[in-house]
Amino acid sequence: MITRSERTLNYAVLVLFSVIALFPVLLILSTALSPDEIGAGGSALSLEFGNFAEAWEQGNFGSYMRTSVIVAVSVVTLATLFSVMAGYAFGTMQFRGSEVIFYLILLGIMVPAEALVVALYFDLRSVGLTNTLVAIVMPQVAQSVAFGTFWMRAYFRSSSREVVEAARLDGAGHWRTLWRVLVPMGRPAITTMIVLMFMWTWNEFLIPLVMATDESLRTAPLGLAFFQGQYTAGTSLLAAGAVLVALPVVVVYLFLQRHFIRGMVEGVAK
């Protein structure tokens, strides 16, 4: 029933759209690897990775990447810890007010950063906290925790009661049961959550833009945006910077792509 030409056509469509999806990526990559028009030419060997080195040093991307790593590690660590704990309580324990609190947090998934950042900036400024890591990290922890609590609660609700019972019979308390039994069992769900939190944090632009005034606090996307404001588009240094900024997320994506797709589709409300 399915002719060969039909199948070929299907693949042709997929290839066409893949080319379209890849074109901007390859354009940036090839620009980054080509010699800078303004630059002094250089030898054939130096032109390839020279741009990256120059972006890292002169373009200050080394500092931007370092800030981004610190921010991402802090946000993901805190948000994961808090989400696992809260999800555990909401998913397996019964307590007064649990539903009200949970749905309040759930609502938080939908609140866009735009709605928080104005008030946050002026209130944090009045306590002298703007232009600090706290101001960049904590709002993102809060947003990630909203999603993570929802995500982990779903996991803990579906987790096997028998296993928990067995752990308790063995004398494990609720804390031990959580970290020794449920968390190791829930590695796939937790990985998905971590991967999403990492991507959101690494790519976040508005919060660091508003909160960070010092150049040393600029995250990678922020640094790139400012860098691009200073140079015209299409220079190889800018492209090299762009590649550096995208690299961590893309590498993680290539290794854990199923988690990205699954998580984004299931966590639509974010």
Partner: peptide
Amino acid sequence: FRVVLFLPQVIPMVVVAVAWRQI
């Protein structure tokens, strides 16, 4: 194809903007 077609969702928006400005 899934990996490639989903890729634009993952790349930081600032990087996307830089690429498209060049285009």
